[in-house]
Computed example of a mutant assay.
Amino acid sequence: MSLVELIGQADERGLAASGLACLDRCVPLLGGDDEILRPLWAGLSDDAGAAEWGERLEQVRGKLGGDGEFGADDGEPGLAGSGSGDSHGSGEDEAVLLARRMLAAAPVERSAAGVRAWADACSVAALQIHRLLDPLKDAGDSVDARREGRTEGMSPLVAAELRRQITVLELLAGHGPAGLRPALEVSTEGRRVLRAVVSRRSRRRG
């Protein structure tokens, strides 16, 4: 089953976990520590956490400086630049912008409709971020093709991110709340990989 199909079939908890996991893996671009999103993860374990989602989200935005909204031309997170992979300015600058958009677009109310749109956009954004930062070129025309199952010629960083997105959704679909812990472990692994990539790029610039 393709990533697009998995997102289409996911329930509210799975969608929230999918979007949150994408954002969690990109936290190194926002200057956050590894625990910054833990309160949001904890709130996914039961229905009561849905009521506290908005408050916890605003606390995270305050810490990461991501409480701004999209401008009129910003569009949905992750859609800008997702076609050709060309960037305006450096790839890392665009990657940071996409990560900030993911955070800014997170819905304050954790409704199924709101988190579905967010999870889908975060999926695109996270794949595009990994495409921008991958030292090897991804041969696909767009990340949308990857999400639909066309995986020929994927670069390693993009392939790993696609696999993690699929795994998170499968864990939540198959195990419900019990899938949250392994989903978090998958996301933690991806965050460490991206942090290492960002660190290597920083050393090369220095």
Rank of each mutant, 00 (worst) to 15 (best):
I7M: 05
G89C: 00
A121G: 02
P28T: 09
G78A: 02
A112L: 10
G83H: 01
L6Q: 07
D120C: 04
K137T: 03
E161T: 15
G19W: 10
A121F: 01
G140R: 12
G81A: 10
A16Q: 01
A104R: 14
E69T: 14
V143L: 10
T167L: 13
L40D: 10
E5P: 05
L23I: 12
E189P: 11
Q59N: 09
R110A: 10
R38E: 11
E170D: 13
S45P: 00
Q128K: 08
A106T: 09
I129R: 04
G71N: 15
G190Q: 11
M154N: 00
R147H: 08
D34E: 12
E94Y: 01
D134T: 08
A104V: 11
D138V: 02
E161N: 08
V60T: 02
S84L: 07
G32K: 08
G8A: 05
L136F: 03
A113M: 03
H175W: 11
D138T: 00
L44A: 07
L133W: 12
D138C: 07
V198A: 03
H175N: 04
L132F: 09
W118A: 06
S155L: 13
V96Q: 09
G66C: 09
V143G: 14
R205Y: 00
A117R: 12
K63Y: 05
L132K: 08
R201E: 01
T188D: 15
S82G: 08
D33Y: 06
R110V: 06
S87K: 04
E12L: 08
G43L: 11
A183Q: 11
A113I: 11
I36C: 00
A178R: 12
